[in-house]
């Protein structure tokens, strides 16, 4: 049951909308326009055996492979805003920037990359300030369509509603990684939940894990313990050669992009 979002302000707890559109016409009976999502060019799936689907925060786990990745195609999401971005978030959200963009049309692109001879990689940059959840839902729907091809699907996501790394999957949550499963009242939201819903609804088999994080969608922070566990889990997935280098690289990337949580990330030492 989804009771409350990460932030704690005094609105009723069933109001969970992203602070994007200041839609004043609550009485409208018209159907709203959906964002447009398309895959730029079709992908020949017979060439690939697996696909890794994740959010931006986990790119660091695959950085060496992504450095030599080849873009196969890309998802484009286009939608229209009312050009009032500077008014579209509240003071009690973590304000990242004072964006006064007057743009009427927004375009987001998420590449589908080939990271080795048989693996595709899609990472979605969530951003609760600038990317509406409907866009992520539509994107998930398109990604799930792609995944109808017989591929081994690995999903890596995050949630601020769990305490430790948990295993997810369909049709079973078998003990593939030796991780526990989710227990009520734990739950997932944002892109991770969206793609899981689409995969489950389409009866697409997948496996993966979700890591505990703090902060709003798109600005998550991971603890050092979680990072070390993720490194252990992804070491076999990344199929690299030097483990020590891999560990250093992951830690460096997370520190540089502000994902690392704890004293070391916020203080000069």
């Amino acid at each position: 049951m989804l009771f409350k979002q990460w932030n704690d302000f005094s609105e009723p707890r069933h109001h969970m909308d992203a602070p994007l559109e200041d839609d004043e016409d609550f009485e409208s009976l018209q159907l709203a326009t959906l964002p447009e999502v398309k895959l730029e060019q079709p992908i020949v799936f017979s060439k690939y055996k697996r696909i890794i689907i994740t959010t931006k925060v986990f790119r660091s786990l695959f950085s060496s492979k992504l450095a030599h990745a080849n873009q196969v195609s890309k998802f484009q999401i286009q939608w229209h805003t009312k050009g009032k971005d500077h008014l579209m978030y509240r003071e009690d959200f973590q304000v990242q920037e004072d964006n006064s963009s007057k743009s009427e049309s927004r375009l987001l692109e998420f590449p589908v990359e080939q990271i080795d001879s048989e693996s595709l990689f899609v990472s979605v940059a969530e951003d609760f300030l600038h990317v509406p959840p409907i866009a992520l839902n539509l994107l998930s729907k398109e990604i799930a369509k792609l995944c109808a091809a017989p591929l081994d699907i690995l999903l890596i996501g995050s949630s601020d509603r769990i305490e430790e790394i948990k295993q997810v999957g369909f049709p079973t949550t078998e003990q593939r990684y030796g991780l526990p499963g989710l227990n009520p009242p734990e739950f997932l939201t944002n892109f991770t939940a969206s793609i899981m819903t689409q995969l489950i609804s389409n009866k697409v088999h997948f496996h993966g894990y979700v890591a505990p994080s703090e902060g709003p969608s798109g600005y998550e922070k991971l603890s050092m313990e979680t990072m070390d566990q993720l490194i252990d889990l992804c070491w076999s997935e990344s199929r690299g050669s030097n483990r020590e280098m891999y560990v250093k690289e992951c830690h460096r990337n997370w520190k540089l992009n502000g994902t690392a949580m704890g004293a070391q990330s916020g203080l000069y030492l």
Binding site: G169, F170, L182, L188, A193, T197, S201
Partner: peptide, 27 residues
């Protein structure tokens, strides 16, 4: 709004709402 959660159940209950459904998560 996107949501996914584990299958809910009643502690100590013999019957489960999702019995024999093959579900792993709620949507």
């Amino acid at each position: 709004f996107p949501f996914a959660g584990p299958l809910d159940y009643v502690k100590g209950s013999e019957t489960s709402l999702y019995e024999k459904t093959g579900q792993t998560f709620t949507t």
